[in-house]
Design a protein around this nucleic acid. Structure first.
Lengths: 201, 201
DNA sequence: AGGTATACGTACCGATCGGTAACATTGTCA
DNA sequence: TGACAATGTTACCGATCGGTACGTATACCT
């Protein structure tokens, strides 16, 4: 029998599908300028497609924003897992690696913080598609940080995990508020101090 | 000669001026739902005035947002100074008082974070009237925290001051992200751990 | 009483918002 | 060749956006 092949052939290097182009542009604009600040007209214009194409690929702008965040979520955990994989079995080094990288990224002049965090600020109403993705991401981050704090042998693992989360969120925000030279560059150092204090007997 | 009296007599308890009503309503709506999410029509409707009244009192919506933040700034420093005044000469207790109060406020179910921080997220472009107010507030907060860290006798006062700022910003954000029971409730405890670690010889 | 300044309301502006209907065009595969 | 799926084209929708021209009411002072 004949195998059912995908519509796009592997050796086909032709232009990506409209939906992909849209998501790619939307991701860039949403992150840099905010979701509410960008209209669908600008997205389709910069993507070189037309508005009906957007609404064939995404049911609404809100769902497009949610798709952007779902992609952001994947990339976020890829970075997180990469930091962890660099120091297997050493949660303290894993955290240091992850936070050092965050601290470096915040020094980038056009750093705009965490797309998840920003989306939650833009959409405070519960149940909004974008916020749902954002909240799930943060809940999972909290869970993992608490798990790592437990593995560290902290006196109060939940408090330490939450403290690390506060430092991370603070770095996201102050990174975009202060720009280079801001408080976010000390996030890894402060996290290490906090860990140290949490291990005292 | 006759003294020039203000137009409003002191014993006049009549309805507040349109500008005041507008700012009062705008403050509430901007904080709870975000600045971009609220249109000027809704503001004037809820304030019981008309649109021209808004534009007689404020040159633009952006300037109205800046006015909202300037008022927010005053109230913020009032809270900050109150916490400091409660423990004169004891910066550690001052910080603990301020952060304990933040931690409590974040547990309020309709907590929406820091209006300054939220505005900066909504308006990433430099020079925007709202962002200008927000950035000035944060710069001053950073300065004061570093000063307090110095007074504490920290090994590295700038790092500790910045660490406290990260925890505070993290509390603002996670307070609105997680709601009650979130990481923000541990902000005072984590700050104290961080201070402890920064005083070690 | 009349002048004058202040405060406010009615009605409107062009632009943009998110979203859609109807139809033409393209490329791919059977 | 002929069917199909994907995309483009054009034009449009009602609602809302931030902002304004212009007339009216009120209150105080002379």
């Amino acid at each position: 029998m004949k195998s059912i092949e995908p519509t796009i052939k592997a050796d086909d290097v032709a232009q990506p599908r409209a939906g992909e182009k849209i998501l790619r542009v939307a991701r860039d604009l949403f992150y840099r300028q905010g979701i509410r600040a960008i209209g669908v007209d600008e997205i389709v214009r910069r993507a070189g497609v037309t508005k009906p194409s957007l609404y064939r690929s995404f049911p609404s702008k809100d769902e497009l924003a949610a798709s952007y965040l779902r992609q952001y979520d994947l990339e976020f955990w890829a970075r997180f897992d990469a930091a962890a994989a660099a120091h297997p079995g050493d949660p303290r080094a894993q955290i240091a690696a992850f936070l050092t990288r965050i601290g470096k990224r915040t020094q980038n002049p056009d750093y705009r913080g965490c797309g998840m965090t920003n989306a939650a600020v833009e959409y405070p109403e519960h149940g909004h598609p974008a916020r749902v993705v954002s909240e799930a991401n943060k809940q999972e981050l909290r869970r993992r940080l608490r798990t790592m704090a437990t593995a560290l042998g902290a006196n109060d693992a939940d408090t330490l995990g939450d403290g690390l989360l506060l430092l991370i969120e603070g770095a996201y925000i102050s990174g975009q508020l202060f720009g280079a030279g801001g408080p976010a560059k000390s996030v890894a150092r402060n996290a290490d101090l906090l860990i140290e204090a949490s291990l005292k007997k």
